[in-house]
């Protein structure tokens, strides 16, 4: 099962800047268990966003958003409402966000960060992959994941190695993920997102507990005047 947590609400608002009319897509699978998806969480988020001045064009909750066929079939039913929106906000893991981005030609933003696959990359494994990086960037990359797609997992745009055909310098038989991201953002008229400076990824989200990493030099570097440093010794 996938483990995800909601992004800070301020980050969601930053992502939705300029998108006044928002369509919500929720997942009733793992995300519902993690409280990052499902009808209740989606309704709660819709409320919050309305208070922030957003118009909710509609909401669809889908059982297992990682199932691309199911997601496509369900979303097409509500295509008129979706077309009225400026953007889609997806309450699911990174795979769900990628699936939605691959079936609609609109800006798609994640509402959650995916922390762990817990053994299974969704229940309907497809070509979309989630790197469980804990800080979902899909909102800036047109719903295409550079962590799993780019050979170098770059976050600030393509490297100098993109071939003239738009392929990856490492595997010439597949497209450069950043070239795809550029094309996608161009299609949805959101190239401005590409200009954001992306902070280096915070790898500490992936580390085991600090207690397992303590060394002599770690101890020397601690400020012993801080009570926190003596915690557990009493």
């Amino acid at each position: 099962m996938l483990v995800s947590e909601m992004k800070p609400h301020e980050e969601v608002l930053t992502l939705l800047k300029g998108s006044d009319n928002v369509y919500l897509v929720g997942c009733n699978g793992c995300a519902e268990v993690c409280q990052t998806g499902g009808p209740e969480v989606a309704a709660e988020l819709a409320d919050k966003l309305q208070k922030d001045g957003k118009v909710i064009a509609g909401t669809t909750n889908i059982d297992f958003l990682c199932n691309k066929v199911l997601a496509g079939t369900r979303l097409i039913r509500d295509i008129d409402s979706i077309n009225k929106a400026d953007a889609l906000l997806v309450l699911s893991c990174g795979i769900g966000v990628q699936v939605v981005a691959s079936v609609v030609d609109m800006p798609v933003f994640p509402a959650a960060n995916t922390k762990s696959m817990g053994g299974a990359p969704g229940l309907w494994p497809g070509e979309e992959k989630c790197g469980q990086c804990g800080n979902c960037l899909l909102g800036y990359t047109g719903g295409i994941c550079p962590i799993t797609g780019c050979a170098k997992s770059l976050v600030n745009g393509q490297c100098g190695g993109t071939t003239d055909d738009g392929d990856c310098e490492v595997e010439n038989d597949r497209p450069c993920t950043w070239a795809q991201i550029y094309q996608r953002l161009k299609t949805v008229n959101r190239l401005d997102l590409l200009k954001n400076f992306m902070e280096p990824r915070d790898k500490s989200a992936l580390l085991p507990n600090v207690a397992t990493r303590k060394t002599l030099y770690w101890a020397v570097d601690q400020d012993v005047s801080e009570p926190a440093a003596t915690e557990g010794c009493e």
Binding site: K152, V155, F197, P200
Partner: peptide, 13 residues
């Protein structure tokens, strides 16, 4: 291993 902890942009920063 390829590190790519930073990229050209974040190294400049």
């Amino acid at each position: 291993a390829g590190v790519f902890d930073l990229d050209s942009v974040s190294l400049l920063r």
